[in-house]
Nucleic acid binder design. Structure first.
Length: 267
DNA sequence: CATCGGACCTGTTAGC
DNA sequence: TGCTAACAGGTCCGAT
């Protein structure tokens, strides 16, 4: 799933529901996913103070610390007011006084981790800037790309450069910017970095406004599909005509990921 | 340090 | 129809 807009969608839906509410209990149906689940029993009866997002992590703040949730490649969270029988790949339930949050993740690349108050969890420690922070500007991006020979698409998806941008949003931002995804990152001019960052912010904001992108697994917490998929111009469109020039969209593998682009207008 | 390949998982689809 | 291989939204680790 789940890139920044999908996690932000979940965060915005959950914040008003969970803030100030007490976690009553929890249920784990396996010992963990990518990492072992933390023991949450000390949190039972504790109040969610804030719901935040950092990179692709959803953060639930308690007085004692923060619960980090990651949806990996195929995860989603579902809010239900009444308990329902668990289905396949329903791994973890957080039970509140007024409902239940259930984590489902077929491929099990997701995670639930604990960070005690005052600690800096290793998963968050080395993350780069948030792309939607106003302080992250073209100069900052250009500086972070300097000297790198790796393809710009790979650099854009590197969370040490900037967080939250996965395959879908990187592909779409590069298409809109008319930049070849194979171009060495360090060769972008400041003007190109400015254009690219503008489009990164645009696709992320549009993604959030549309409730994310639902390819298969991702859904909002009430089960809704995200409709940013309806705006895809390059992602998943191999062989179909470029919306700008009608040249067939091509795919190359960069950093092990399929990368769709227009060979004519992304020079 | 930067870069690359592979690993972690299951499910779906394309191709034979 | 049935089998197999390739591929999928994301990290993370070890080798070079």
């Amino acid at each position: 799933m789940p890139e920044l807009p999908e996690i932000e969608t979940v965060k915005r839906a959950l914040a008003p529901r969970l803030t100030g509410r007490a976690l009553i209990s929890s249920r784990a149906r396996r010992s963990g996913l990518r990492h072992p689940f933390p023991d949450l029993s000390a949190l039972h009866g504790q109040i969610v103070r804030e719901v935040r997002r950092r990179s692709k992590y959803l953060l639930l703040d308690f007085d004692q610390g923060t619960l980090l949730l990651h949806l990996g490649m195929s995860g989603h969270l579902r809010w239900m007011e009444q308990d329902q029988p668990a289905g396949k790949h329903d791994h973890l339930d957080l039970i509140f006084e007024h409902g239940l949050l259930r984590l489902n993740d077929p491929r099990r690349f997701g995670a639930a981790m604990w960070q005690s108050r005052g600690e800096d969890h290793p998963a968050l420690a080395s993350l780069g800037p948030e792309p939607l922070d106003t302080s992250f500007d073209a100069k900052a991006l250009h500086l972070r790309l300097r000297g790198r020979k790796t393809p710009i698409k790979v650099a854009l998806m590197d969370p040490r450069v900037v967080v939250g941008v996965g395959n879908i949003y990187a592909t779409e931002a590069l298409f809109r910017s008319r930049i070849d995804p194979r171009k060495p990152a360090g060769e972008l001019t400041l003007a190109q970095a400015r254009k690219l960052l503008g489009h990164v912010k645009d696709v992320l904001n549009e993604g959030i406004a549309r409730g994310g992108s639902t390819l298969r697994d991702f859904h909002g917490i009430e089960g809704q599909a995200g409709t940013f998929v309806d705006t895809f111009q390059a992602y998943g469109r191999q062989g179909l005509p470029c919306p700008r020039c009608n040249t067939p969209i091509q795919t190359v593998r960069l950093g092990g990921r399929a990368s769709a682009f227009c060979p004519r207008c992304q020079g």
